[in-house]
Simulated scan of single mutants.
Amino acid sequence: MDPVYNATDCFPANGTNASLNCSGFNQFVQPVWRITLWAVAYCSIVVVSVAGNVVVIWIILAHKRMRTVTNYFLVNLAFAEAAMSAFNTVINFVYAVHNDWYFGLAYCRFHNFFPIAAIFASICSMTAIASDRYMAIIHPLQQRLSSTETRLVIAVIWVLALLLAFPQYYYSSTTPLPGRTVCYIDWPEYATVDFRKIYYVCVTLLIYFLPLGIMGCAYTAVGISLWASEIPGDSLEHYREQLLAKRKVVKMMVVVVCTFAGCWLPYHVYFLLHQFFPDVFEQRYIQQVYLAVMWLAMSSTMYNPVIYYCLNSKFRAGFQQVFCCCAPTVAKDELELKTPRYLQTQVSSYRASRMETVVSTAVCPGERAAPEVTSNGSEANNNTAPPRTAPRGTL
């Protein structure tokens, strides 16, 4: 077992423990003004993240038009981020500042266990979205995931996430010290292998570098397919709209992935360095570095709703419907008007107009088709011949 009183072993090796010194003396006391600033910064994350991600979940689940494969994964991503922000951010800050664990053994285990599971679920959801976009654009003729299959994939993601994080739960422990209590990971010691280092290296690969590599390859192929050639000038309006819509979705998800990668990179570099150079992390300034790195990582949970609002008109309408009383009707129309029934009506109207055009050109000059009198006394065209060409696609 790791020596409980060794300062480097009690340091937060997983990002959720913040005891920088396992002796009874706390050398990392901060002035009140600095603690206040950090408290405002961390609490802001919780407010923005929980409120924004809850609204994202509501927009998708409360509007039938929004229930797509991509959006189901966005629901899973929003849930994981909101939960991690609500259950871990403030507790992490309190422990980092006070170096005293007030919350008992059960929450110590949950506090060490849940962030790994939530991060894994988040990045796997983004990877699933990238895979779905890749299949939809590069292989459009292959069958897409159904809603049932999507839910099954989400369930598998969470099962794998819980299994990956289980060692953090199993080896978590609390130890009373003179004047305070510490929450830490009591890793087992083996003569031939360093289980702790192997675990953290594997976790970093699985929750960061490997998924980002997969998403990078997928979005590179999708970007080449969507942006390699210009839209033909004589293409149908429906084709142009579809292509532009796909580009917008890909742009939004690339921004989401890049934001996640930028926020979590310092975190993973920080804790990988701690595994191999622990002596550096005994300096007094390291607490401020830790608080900054952890704030940046946890802030990734609050950016996605802002990105959705800025880059997607449907999400923007949903946020306006929740937070803006000035134009709720316009926002509701954006989310609800173009339902499948509405689209079928538009297609029928388009077909009817095409039919009338074809029939009118088929009538000889000087002739006029005999009108049919409807029940209300108006005249209607009696020609019902099918059009020569069918419209390509629907709105």
Rank of each mutant, 00 (worst) to 15 (best):
G24K: 06
K338W: 14
Q344F: 07
T361Y: 00
K64R: 12
G213R: 05
T68C: 05
R392L: 01
V47A: 07
V289W: 03
L296D: 06
P371F: 00
T220P: 02
F28D: 14
W227Y: 11
W227Q: 00
N88S: 12
T374S: 12
L243I: 00
G213T: 06
N88K: 10
Y350K: 03
V40I: 14
E81M: 09
C325D: 01
T357M: 12
H63Y: 15
Q321V: 13
Q27H: 09
N26Y: 00
L177D: 04
L291W: 09
F93D: 03
V255Q: 05
T89P: 03
A191F: 11
A362N: 02
V47P: 00
M302P: 05
L243N: 08
V94P: 01
G393C: 02
W33M: 11
V182C: 13
A292V: 03
N17H: 10
K197S: 13
L206M: 12
G233S: 07
M84I: 07
P278S: 10
L210C: 09
D132G: 07
E282F: 13
E241Q: 12
W227K: 01
H139A: 07
A130K: 03
P391I: 05
N112V: 08
Y239T: 12
V255G: 01
H98K: 12
L37M: 05
R65G: 09
E356D: 11
V4N: 10
Y42E: 06
E230Y: 04
V75T: 09
C10L: 03
A83V: 05
M84D: 10
P178S: 14
P12R: 15
T204H: 14
V40C: 03
T192M: 15
Q346P: 01
Q320W: 05
S313R: 10
E372F: 02
V306A: 04
C108A: 13
K332P: 06
P386S: 13
T394P: 00
N71H: 12
I286R: 03
V159Y: 09
R180Q: 10
C217T: 06
N53H: 02
Q168E: 07
R341E: 15
C310N: 06
G216A: 03
Y342E: 12
V256T: 05
T68A: 04
S348N: 09
